[in-house]
Design a protein around this nucleic acid. Structure first.
Length: 285
DNA sequence: TTTGTGCCTTAGCT
DNA sequence: AAGCTAAGGCACA
């Protein structure tokens, strides 16, 4: 018999900070809970005293998909212990205890970050929601609103540019459509991505128009689980400059090298802490 | 080789 | 109310 809800005992899991942190864009805050879609199923999540409570609309036999997405078995303490013992990163950890990295679907993650160019989180959410509503598969919902999956690669490839522009994508529309078509055409080695080393996977992703290193690195970190990859965007750049390079403005190359070498094997995690700390608590310019 | 500029859209803020 | 800016990438100087 399947179940409609299950509680996963976890410690040190800051669900709010994690789902708000700008790594995923499909979560809606409803009352005390979060509603979204994982693995083609509508899900409601909330934090209780004993752990994360998950509810679904149709009985589930195997919750592995959810455990994987939320990375419930990840040992956060062990990762944090590898961070450098400097003030900026330790302050960021203290400010956002329990912040985690998710493990998302490759296509949804890639598509979301193609949409992210010069957009703020609220606007990315809006684009993702519109795309899902128009071109995603309708799902059984346990909430008051109908639920839709993020549109499949095939569905996006079949859209006209105008249809995508109607979802407020602007100049990102041809990039998203092009990525979907290139993947289906076999123009990049999409199937092997999960098993490739990060340098190779990054190079593959960057063959897509509209995908530079920043977006490729986000996909490697948030979907591929390459936890050593440190995406550098303008916020992180400002944060690193202010926190670590107070004397002289570093070149882009110098900054890149610092990001790649200073933070250790879980640099991607460090990036998330610095990013969210900077975004929420720091005055940057 | 590295670094800077304008452009691609759109929405929300001033 | 027009002008500016925002988690990026690209072509070009």
């Amino acid at each position: 018999m399947g179940e409609l809800s299950k509680t996963f005992p976890v410690r040190d899991y800051n669900l709010d900070a994690t789902l708000l942190s700008g790594q995923a864009f499909c979560w809606q805050s409803i009352g005390q809970a979060w509603e979204g879609v994982i693995g083609g199923r509508w899900v409601r999540l909330r934090l209780s005293k004993v752990g994360i409570v998950a509810e679904v609309a149709k009985p589930v036999h195997n919750w592995a998909c959810l455990e994987h997405y939320l990375q419930l078995h990840f040992d956060l303490g062990r990762a944090l212990a590898t961070f450098p013992d400097d003030e900026p990163i330790q302050n960021a950890i203290a400010a956002l205890p329990g912040l985690r990295l998710l493990r998302q679907d490759y296509w949804e993650c890639l598509a979301s970050f193609i949409l992210s160019a010069t957009k703020q989180i609220v606007q990315i959410r809006q684009m993702v929601a519109l795309l899902s509503k128009r071109f995603g598969k309708p799902l059984e919902s346990g909430g008051s609103e109908p639920a839709f999956a993020f549109p499949a690669i095939e569905a996006v490839a079949a859209c006209s540019e105008a249809e995508l522009r109607d979802c407020k994508l602007g100049f990102r529309a041809p990039n998203l459509r092009g990525a979907a078509r290139d993947i289906l055409d076999g123009s990049i080695n999409w199937q092997q991505l999960p098993t490739m080393p990060s340098n190779e996977a990054r190079a593959e992703l960057m063959k897509l128009r509209g995908v530079g290193q920043k977006i490729a690195d986000c996909v490697l970190l948030y979907a591929g689980g390459h936890q050593d990859v440190f995406p550098v965007d303008v916020w992180i750049e400002r944060a690193l400059r202010q926190l670590y390079f107070t004397k002289r403005r570093p070149s882009a190359k110098r900054l890149r090298k610092f990001a790649d070498t200073h933070f250790g094997p879980y640099a991607g995690y460090a990036q998330q802490y610095l990013f969210d700390h900077a975004r929420l608590h720091l005055k940057l310019k």
